[in-house]
């Protein structure tokens, strides 16, 4: 993997006259796995959207491999964004349409082909390979809408990987899933990261779904970075108290870090 680095400098995103994201400096080297956590409304999704150029900051610059996203025209911006695999929250895609699983995964190849050029056999070979890799072979011709939430998430991951991205942005990929699916999706993300060494930015409310491969966590509160470092450094009782206004401690199991409420534990 040669590309896939991200750099944000002096970023300020405003909405309705209020600053919702303010970052002095944040650099993510190519091939890193970074977990983004924080309170509700802390600016985690805004950060992803700003990195992908979906939200234009009021000031500051977003650079992908040293190319300033804000300085590009629409066509050049599209060319740069081909490197981004993006998995949004479920409210941002239309799961009710009768697209088949293969059609959804094939959408990952769209930006790799110029306008007016159809996907060819090679594209579909890549699509089918990712369908098989994610264990969706028997679901290939079923509609996306007929799948369970966990299976839909697998399809979205296959779609993003079919794009052969250098940066993979995941916005709450384990939200609204049962614990078995949360674990499965988290393991899939880790496996894909280790196989492809794609740069990963994973937003999550729950620390337990960040896989052991996640070697860095950035913690947000009210649009600002509260802590940025190794999971051990960020998920300390002191830092969590500052960010969440409560007493929490971290339980480590199989390389994953789960936060538990220390106050309630004390009550018992």
């Amino acid at each position: 993997m040669t590309g896939g680095s991200l750099s944000l400098s002096q970023i300020s995103v405003r909405r309705s006259g209020r600053t919702i994201l303010s970052i002095d400096h944040l650099t993510i080297p190519a091939g890193a796995f970074v977990g983004i956590i924080g309170t509700n409304g802390a600016g985690k999704t805004t950060l992803l959207k700003t990195c992908a150029g979906l939200i234009a900051p009021a000031q500051g610059s977003v650079r992908i491999d040293d190319v300033n996203l804000g300085r590009l025209g629409p066509w050049a911006r599209c060319r740069l964004r081909k490197r981004i695999g993006y998995i949004p929250q479920s409210t941002e895609y239309n799961a009710e349409l009768p697209f088949t699983v293969r059609e959804v995964v094939a959408m990952g190849r769209t930006s790799l082909k110029p306008l007016l050029v159809r996907l060819d056999r090679q594209d579909y070979a890549v699509v089918d390979r990712w369908i098989e890799t994610l264990g969706l072979g028997n679901r290939r011709d079923q509609t996306f809408r007929s799948l369970s939430g966990g299976e839909q998430q697998k399809v979205l991951i296959a779609r993003a990987m079919a794009q052969e991205p250098e940066i993979l942005m995941l916005d709450e990929p384990c939200a609204n899933l049962d614990f078995n699916w949360k674990h499965q999706i988290s393991e899939i993300i880790e496996r894909l990261y280790r196989q492809t060494n794609v740069t990963v930015l994973m937003v999550s409310h729950e620390t337990g779904v960040l896989p052991p491969a996640c070697e860095r966590i950035v913690l947000f509160r009210e649009g600002r970075i509260v802590a940025d470092g190794t999971p051990d450094a960020v998920l300390s009782t002191e830092v969590l108290r500052r960010a969440y206004d409560g007493a929490f401690r971290v339980v480590v199991a199989e390389g994953r870090r789960y936060t538990v409420n220390a106050e309630r534990e004390g009550d018992r």
Partner: peptide
């Protein structure tokens, strides 16, 4: 027919289309 592949992504998710470099606004 000509913009079939872009239209499909657009219908599925304008956010995904835009974030991943599909010429969404143009189409």
């Amino acid at each position: 027919m000509l913009f079939n592949k872009e239209l499909k992504v657009l219908l599925f998710s304008r956010t995904i289309a835009s974030a991943t470099g599909v010429h969404e606004t143009f189409v």
